[in-house]
Design a protein around this nucleic acid. Structure first.
Lengths: 225, 225
DNA sequence: ACCTGAACACCGTTCAAGT
DNA sequence: ACCTGAACACCGTTCAAGT
């Protein structure tokens, strides 16, 4: 089902190369935890017991290394998204998934910045992440919209990026409680018209899809150099 | 009225030192525009025609330099906040102010990150910014809350940080239109219960203050090392 | 095929020496 | 008082030499 190339690692590898590769990933994970996603590559190589050149051979860019280190967590979150499609309430499913996404991108300092930056689609290895996330989140969003619980003009990319921004704020302020409050505000803003803040009285289940709200400005894709 | 120590610069300065100081600020502004808030300090000194030591003498940290460079804009935004207290609608005044805040923190790449990080209160020179902004935003927020237009449990710090996060997203995605959409969602989330997304029919002006919503988790100020 | 580490080009920061 | 720039301690990245 899931086709995440980062999970398997490179296809064929000489025995010693394989060992080095694995050591590098392990060392990187440890260093990232300790010093954040900007940890010294030299130190990672040292910790793995290999030369810096070996690190570069396996992971040409820092993002390649990050991608491999978070590959499993990424796959887990994506799977979680698919699983949540079975949850009773589409909107709480989406909310819960976003909350878990934030927890994930918060595991290393600087991770959320790296992931969000790659979310533009710069062509780096990290963009496997983008596509998988968009797909998983998109399904949850579509369901919540179909149920009339979330505004029709919301789009996955923005929602995921906003989750990143909440994570970023929490990182900056070092206030872990901030993400829940921000996510709460965001989510109220995402609600379809009527149901906002009124916690869904049993009466108005299966409401018709909401009319298009007018608050959000139309997208005008200007892009600058 | 405004007491922003960064506006005046240091009190007494030898003529040549004064010249160097001004050149440094000018050079920094230019380099920040070109390379972002992380521009090379060495290059700034070179551009200003002084030794790197002179830069450090006047601006011990990068934040000190940034603070001076954005001092005028900061003062302008603060003044704008005070002026907006006279606007007809408290909530659109707040919205407009936030939008202008975002425009400001977006002038240099990396500015918003620097400002948001300092917003924790690390004791750097940049925190003049924090206090002035909190004060200006706080007044606008209080007025909007008193009018029953904005949730009572919203607080300035978070709102300002969210504005930063919107700016950050725009920076990451290089999509300038993103900030308006994100700010729109955020603002709908901030609205007091009833008025959400229903664009304020003339009928319900001067509504009583809204009851406390329940969506936002209570603050628990844990702080970690 | 794969690994190593010296070499290069960059940073930021300090501080002894100068005027 | 103030300025200068060499010196130091760090980065990331490349690549010739080795096995």
């Amino acid at each position: 089902m899931s086709t995440n190339p980062n999970l398997d690692g490179p296809r064929a590898l000489r025995a010693d190369a394989r060992r080095n590769y694995d050591q590098l990933v392990k060392a990187a994970s440890a260093q990232f935890t300790e010093y954040g996603a900007g940890a010294s590559l030299e130190d990672i190589a040292k910790r793995a017991g290999v030369g810096i050149g070996t690190l570069y051979r396996h992971f040409p860019t820092r993002d390649d290394l990050i991608a491999k280190v978070v590959a499993e967590s990424t796959a887990a979150i994506v799977a979680r998204g698919h699983a949540l499609l079975d949850a009773a309430s589409p909107s709480v499913a989406l909310a819960r998934w976003l909350r878990e996404l934030v927890t994930f991108v918060t595991t290393y300092r600087g991770l959320t910045a790296a992931l969000a930056a790659s979310y533009v689609g710069s062509g780096t290895e990290l963009c496997v992440y983008c596509d998988l996330m968009s797909e998983a989140g998109g399904a949850l969003l579509a369901r919540a919209q179909a149920a009339g619980e979330i505004r029709r003009d919301a789009n996955v990319r923005e929602i995921i990026l906003t989750a990143h921004s909440a994570a970023w704020i929490a990182e900056q302020t070092k206030d872990p409680a901030a993400v829940d409050r921000l996510l709460g505000i965001l989510f109220d803003g995402l609600r379809a018209n009527r149901s906002t803040a009124k916690p869904a009285s049993r009466r108005q289940r299966r409401a018709r899809p909401a009319k298009r709200p007018r608050t959000i400005a139309a997208t005008a894709h200007r892009r600058r150099a």
